[in-house]
Design a protein around this nucleic acid. Sequence first.
DNA 1: GTAATTCCTATTAAATCGATAGGATTAATG
DNA 2: CATTAATCCTATCGATTTAATAGGAATTAC
Lengths: 137, 137
Amino acid sequence: MLSKKTKYGLKALTYIAKNEGDNPVQISEISKNENIPQKFLESIMLTLRKSGFLGSKKGKHGGYYLIKEPANIKMADVMRVLEGPIAMVPCVSLNFYEKCDDCPDEHDCSVHKLMIQVRDNTLKVLRNNTLEDLSGS
Amino acid sequence: MLSKKTKYGLKALTYIAKNEGDNPVQISEISKNENIPQKFLESIMLTLRKSGFLGSKKGKHGGYYLIKEPANIKMADVMRVLEGPIAMVPCVSLNFYEKCDDCPDEHDCSVHKLMIQVRDNTLKVLRNNTLEDLSGS
DNA sequence: GTAATTCCTATTAAATCGATAGGATTAATG
DNA sequence: CATTAATCCTATCGATTTAATAGGAATTAC
């Protein structure tokens, strides 16, 4: 299940991509228009800034802006930062690999084989889609 | 993230498919060979029986056996029983649909569009794979 | 009738999630 | 320079979910 954190984060990025002008976009504006609790959104924006997707300007007339072109922001990368691993089990994760406690040999594990296929297909979608695709009409 | 419940359930089904003979397969045997806590597995087997994947025999020399051919047990169906919705958000779920609180119109939601693609690709994999595929060499 | 097994319900401990609290810091503006 | 408006940061809280355990009832083979 997708966490609210990720969902809100994706919506916020989309909102900024659509509404970015000369001034940065403020949390309060996104919060109102997308029905996201403001304080919760605050922490999400912080994460997105610290991970290099957003820049920010403090103080009056401050807010957030995109650092990269929407076409260069892959959903796979955003998801990894907000949601964590894309794979459904750590033992098939490319970026967050971990051995399973219960498997003596993962190459002999039926779940492993299945989850690699799921991961590959999910990755294909998340790599093909950029913020431009999400924010485009 | 795949729950242990689902992971253990899939492993147990695979184990039964591989090792089924004249006698039903016992929880204790699966538990030992697959490193699954026995009492936890017990409740999972119960779920799988109640949802029509397994039959059981009580008492001495009792155990569990498959009700359908492995080739006719789709991973999508098992996953829905053990893990719940396959979709990452309820608003794109085929079997567990729910409207989002925060979306006035889901056809206008960027996350919705993306998650439909993820769902479709995941479903493709989970419908193509049967228990026979998992338990085959 | 005894041992071995599934069946069933309840409970618990830990982790995660969604959200909130409260102020510190920074910048624009008159 | 004071005020206002925004981000920044850390901590915390309550609810839910997850993984696992407990304890016994019911059933069957022998």
